[in-house]
Design a protein around this nucleic acid. Structure first.
Lengths: 127, 127
DNA sequence: ACAATATGTCAGAAAAACTTACATGAATTT
DNA sequence: AAATTCATGTAAGTTTTTCTGACATATTGT
């Protein structure tokens, strides 16, 4: 609970993040557009990412792979944040919404043989 | 003695390194020219630095501030490397050379009131 | 079939970084 | 004192990287 700020320092440029995550620039920008991440910007408006951003991007990648869509990921992240803030897990997502998400998840997880672990990217290189 | 490789991954661009070290691009390129560092390159020939590089740059900055010149720094680094390689500290530097360096060091350290600790840069932000 | 999603691709503009060359003040050498 | 060396500044022109915006498209949901 001390040098956590280091993980939130925006040190990484687009190119590196692409390599670390195995995502394309288009994907990364799209996730930002969808407000799943909010990278810092240089004076010249270029994106600068933190290690925390990398974490989030890898999680997005995994969730998409298992079939959750952006809307679902957004909800999941909201849940995380509210519980992480240790505020008695607010009901930001209705039960039906949650069930829909989980169902969707299960379906695709079944279809695809749950080939989960990412590879071909450099994610194994950090943390 | 395990995830040390992470510190050697070239993740950082010139701009960030300038901020982290408080050095100018000119200085950083000059130190490379003098073979004190050897940053990786992207396909397009842009420099990419590792955390280890940052360490070295900060050390260069400190040593220069205390009055050691590039040649001296080069020698010091050689000593470090050979002893780090735990090869019975070879005499890569003659005694007279060493004395010259130390003398030079002492003189300048005296002149300048030994205002040592760096500030104004972001070095405190990592590690 | 139609609409929505997530991503690819292209084009033009802007930002960042590169190399090379010349300038310069401080320190050192001759 | 003049010349030289050292470490850094600065300018110009070029290349690389990133940006935004638009349009294309395959897959999935209704």
């Amino acid at each position: 609970m001390e040098k956590q700020w280091r993980r939130s320092m925006p040190l990484l440029s687009m190119n590196i993040v692409m390599q670390l995550t195995g995502l394309t620039a288009r994907q990364i920008r799209y996730y930002e557009e969808q407000e799943l991440i909010e990278p810092a910007r240089t004076e010249g408006k270029q994106r600068m990412f933190s290690l925390d951003d990398i974490d989030v991007l890898l999680e997005i990648k995994d969730l998409l792979k298992t079939g959750v869509n952006i809307a679902g990921i957004k909800q999941i992240f909201e849940m995380k944040n509210s519980s992480a803030a240790s505020k008695a897990v607010k009901r930001v997502i209705t039960d039906t919404e949650l069930r829909a998400i989980v169902k969707e998840e299960m379906q695709l997880a079944h279809r695809q043989q749950r080939a989960s672990l990412r590879q071909g990217d450099l994610s194994r290189f950090y943390r």
